[in-house]
Design a protein around this nucleic acid. Structure first.
Lengths: 170, 170
DNA sequence: TGTAGATTGAGACTCGGTCTCAACACGAGG
DNA sequence: CCTCGTGTTGAGACCGAGTCTCAATCTACA
């Protein structure tokens, strides 16, 4: 059990939630593979690694971990939700490449401040926010430029539909 | 057939897409009921109004209209997609009240500019973006303050899950 | 008006995710 | 360490949003 996993479980226990064998296993697997992931591939990875855990438990544990504040959930695009460890990480936004599915993260305090301004103007009390920029990352842009140097490269389908497909790969 | 519907159809035809009875009917229904809507309730409304149109056609037509640029699609939260007419409207962002489901729109050029800055820094070519702020709108805040003036009102469940539920109502 | 090819409809299907409920196991209290 | 209340699990049925199939139909161009 690595340190990240222990921090996860401490946080879970502090929320009055029982630490079961299955939850430990979920947390361990997540902490061994940092980055964004979806529920289904986590489940696949766990069963591939020999864990006897049910799909329902994986989905339930992910929700629990989000509630305990150790995981963040991102609804990016039209497909399945993505999760990401949030312990020890500050809030950030995402750029999603619609070609290769890469997710770039960025922090921009000035955007956050402008959001607060807007909320104040509207008397809206913000609880959470998400900023997703869909587009083409620099390396995919390079590839496209090399293969067809005359025309501006464009993804096959609009970002709204292809973005999610790309994300599944990521 | 009102003016908005005609503009829709002109745009559709310009995209080399056939104008069928069903598509006309979809466009008419949308243009008679402005605001955000989801595919299922549009289908329900159409059949309730006596249109003989299939669910598949409604979904297909919505995708077509998005491709033709007359509709925008928003993946807000974990449930179904929302659509919104985009003709004659400039790009805007959304604040979603997790209590009553109201969707507030706002425009903030400075945020757009900062996004462009970030993209430039990362060599990322942006195609589209979405900024969603989940929180509590002023009137829900007022209601909560009246009913329990001692404690800061808080929605029952975190915005990530309740936001979508609220949206379904909206 | 004829015709090629786009579009439709009914319903099966997919996919991400949730629910059910009996069996099980965590952990507080003794 | 043991007991017991109750939170948790697993298998698979179920759900809801959305897509696919393919024969029949319709649009729009010539």
């Amino acid at each position: 059990m690595n340190e990240v996993a222990e921090r996860f479980l401490r946080n879970v226990r502090n929320n009055g939630v029982r630490v079961t064998r299955e939850r430990r296993r979920v947390v361990e697997t997540i902490s061994r593979h940092p980055g964004h992931f979806d529920a289904e591939s986590l489940y696949a990875r766990m069963t591939a690694e020999g864990a006897r855990v049910s799909r329902a438990t994986v989905y339930r544990t992910l929700s629990t971990l989000v509630e305990c504040g150790v995981l963040r959930r991102h609804d990016v695009g039209e497909r399945q939700a993505l999760f990401e460890a949030s312990i020890g990480r500050r809030h950030h936004e995402h750029m999603i490449c619609v070609v290769c599915g890469t997710i770039l993260e960025f922090v921009e305090d000035r955007i956050e401040r402008l959001q607060d301004d807007v909320c104040r103007r509207y008397g809206f009390r913000p609880l959470s926010h998400a900023l997703h920029i869909h587009g083409v990352c620099s390396s995919c842009e390079d590839v496209a430029r090399r293969t067809s140097p005359t025309s501006t490269p464009e993804p096959a389908t609009p970002p709204s539909s292809d973005g999610a497909a790309a994300l599944r790969r990521g």
